[in-house]
């Protein structure tokens, strides 16, 4: 009696997981399906399943100058803003957790408030300010703007990581005669390394996926980022859905690889951010 009941239970458990799997993966399948169709077969063949495996769209994508330029722009922006954000966040989080000084808690609060303030509130003055300092339509300008949310994000996450490591080690090293800086580099940095990987992944994807600032601040095709270019593709007359999905697939690939290669760090980062913060 109990075993049959268990069997049913196990059956429904895996059935639910299977349905969940389809729900999760279907959009990815649809992206690939459309990306492998030629423009003419998009409308003529109402099929759910077969893929044409027509590589035309991928060829068009990697030969499209707009796409390649924006890919290059995105890579430059993401790497520079991530590296700067990691450095500044590391310094700030270290300062806010390990060192004691007047006004520390207030500064910490300001950074968390900045972390919680979304781009939707700030994008208008940001565009005006970037224009006023003559950095509209430059990669530099967008890097600076991205730091405004990447640094608070990184600091917020790293504060959590710093709180979860044994600070006594740093104190012990200092008693043994190490300077603050030596203790930071030799003792704390190795301990915080997983946190830096998490922050690296999350800030990089944050910059990579950003749409609103990029849309408002960089309108010149030469400095557009990937999301803006792909969206811009949809506005053309002939609605090149297949090409758009091929570009999307190419754009999604590096980020998905990054996430799954660093899955452990991503999950740890999210947890640290929302629980230990």
């Amino acid at each position: 009696m109990i075993t049959t009941k268990n069997k049913f239970y196990v059956f429904y458990k895996y059935l639910t997981l299977f349905v969940l799997g389809i729900f999760i993966l279907f959009p990815l399948y649809w992206m690939l399906n459309l990306s492998f169709r030629s423009q003419s077969s998009l409308y003529t063949r109402f099929t759910l399943l077969p893929l044409d495996l027509n590589l035309q769209n991928y060829r068009l994508a990697i030969e499209n100058d707009f796409f390649l330029t924006s890919l290059r722009n995105t890579v430059i922006i993401c790497f520079s803003s991530t590296l700067i954000a990691i450095l500044f966040s590391l310094m700030a989080a270290y300062s806010l957790t390990i060192l004691k000084y007047k006004g520390r808690d207030t500064l910490g609060k300001i950074i968390i408030v900045a972390f919680l303030t979304p781009g939707a509130i700030l994008f208008i003055p940001m565009a005006v300010i970037v224009a006023n300092i003559n950095l509209s339509n430059t990669l530099k300008g967008l890097v600076l703007v991205y730091l405004s949310f990447l640094v608070p994000l990184g600091t917020y996450l790293l504060i959590g990581f710093f709180k979860s490591i044994p600070v006594e080690l740093e104190e012990a090293a200092r008693i043994d005669g190490a300077s603050r800086l030596q203790a930071l580099i030799l003792i704390l940095l190795p301990l915080i390394a997983p946190g830096l990987v998490s922050v690296g992944i999350l800030t990089f994807t944050g910059a990579y996926n950003e749409l609103l600032y990029a849309l408002v601040i960089n309108t010149d095709p030469a400095v557009r980022t990937l999301p803006v270019t792909i969206v811009w593709l949809t506005n053309s007359e002939e609605s090149p859905w297949g090409l758009m999905m091929a570009c999307s697939a190419i754009a999604a690939l590096p980020i998905m690889i990054l996430y799954f290669a660093g899955q452990r760090f991503v999950v740890e980062g999210l947890q640290t951010g929302s629980v230990k913060g």
């Binding site: 969940l20 799997g21 999760i24 993966l25 279907f26 959009p27 990815l28 649809w30 992206m31 459309l34 998009l42 409308y43 994807t205 990579y208 996926n209 749409l211 999301p227 792909i230 969206v231 949809t234 859905w241 758009m244 999905m245 999307s248 697939a249 754009a251 999604a252 980020i255 998905m256 996430y259 799954f260 899955q263 991503v266 999950v267």
Partner: peptide, 26 residues
Amino acid sequence: GLVLVPYAIPGFVAFLIWRLIYHTEV
């Protein structure tokens, strides 16, 4: 790992795909 997929895919890609899932013709 499977559950992480929608989160791992860039948001702009995800919503463009959904636009084409809802599309009247394709």
